[in-house]
């Protein structure tokens, strides 16, 4: 069955989620991946959106982080201060998803500005929940399309901290969480190399050449000793994802 790169990324991201995970879900691809996991292999996964909705089971994907659908299908809805203090800062969340305009080889992410902060070339939305999601979720998965403009040697601004410029920095700051551990792109899967804190390629999507990955990465990318070939999406996964997207599109067009 044919699939596009967005579908592939979403399916790959959904597969790494476990039934026992408690996910802090962001809008867009993370939301699609988390709900796909819930509709396929992880029916009891706990999804939490920063608007305060806990254990939510939306029938269509929300356009915003606080669509009514999230509250109506949640076990409970708490206030935003409670969400960030008790649930996130309190260490209750196992997985956080992040994306951004730029990421570097240590998983530091920029969603704030391109150029100088005080005189930005492009003003991006900013951090929102990301700085503390990156700190307090037990682990972080990143979903981003790969391009040399997005995968850069050094981000213009660290909105959310990955591994700084090497291993051990998180621990030195008093953080016991792993930080970004996987990046899922439209070309490959990267994982943190423990010894260096750097992201290296551990799985290549079917039909993608190593050169293509390097061309779309702004740093000298390294490959793991054993690189896997990513399993293609299965029929069942693609059907569930397409149905979800179709229902969502109909709902948003009003």
């Amino acid at each position: 069955m044919q699939y596009n790169s967005t579908e592939l990324m979403t399916v790959v991201a959904s597969r790494i989620l476990k039934n026992s995970d408690v996910c802090f879900v962001g809008i867009g691809l993370p939301s699609a991946a988390c709900n796909l996991a819930r509709l396929t292999h992880a029916p009891d996964i706990t999804l939490i959106y920063e608007s305060g909705t806990i254990q939510t089971k939306p029938d269509v994907l929300p356009l915003s982080i606080g669509d009514g659908e999230l509250c109506e299908t949640a076990l409970t809805t708490v206030s935003v201060p409670e969400m960030f203090s008790y649930w996130l800062q309190g260490g209750r969340i196992t997985v956080g998803f992040l994306g951004g305009a730029q990421i570097d080889k240590f998983g530091n992410i920029n969603t704030t500005v391109v150029g100088d902060y005080h005189k930005p070339k492009v003003r991006l939305p900013g951090g929102g929940g990301a700085p503390e999601i990156a700190a307090f979720c037990h682990t972080i998965y990143v979903i981003m399309k790969q391009s040399p403009r997005a995968f850069v040697e050094k981000v213009d601004f660290i909105t959310s901290f990955g591994h700084g410029d090497g291993p051990g920095q998180r621990k030195a700051m008093g953080l016991n969480t792993s930080g970004p551990s996987k990046i899922i792109t439209d070309l490959c899967i990267m994982e943190t190399e423990e010894a260096t804190g750097e992201f290296i390629v551990t799985s290549i999507h079917p039909g993608v050449a190593r050169e293509t990955i390097q061309e779309n990465t702004g740093w000298k990318i390294r490959f793991a000793e054993e690189v896997a070939i990513t399993d293609v999406p299965e029929l069942e996964e693609l059907e569930a994802l397409r149905l979800l997207n179709e229902k969502t599109k109909m709902a948003h067009q009003g």
């Binding site: 201060p81 203090s85 800062q89 951090g127 503390e132 700190a135 660290i158 700051m173």
Partner: peptide, 22 residues
């Protein structure tokens, strides 16, 4: 900061901004 305002506190104290440029 809103919770601090409601609580009559001059500032909010929390854990955050680890390694963040903000």
């Amino acid at each position: 900061a809103y919770a601090a305002g409601a609580s009559g506190m001059p500032c909010a104290i929390f854990k955050g901004y680890y390694g963040a440029d903000l």
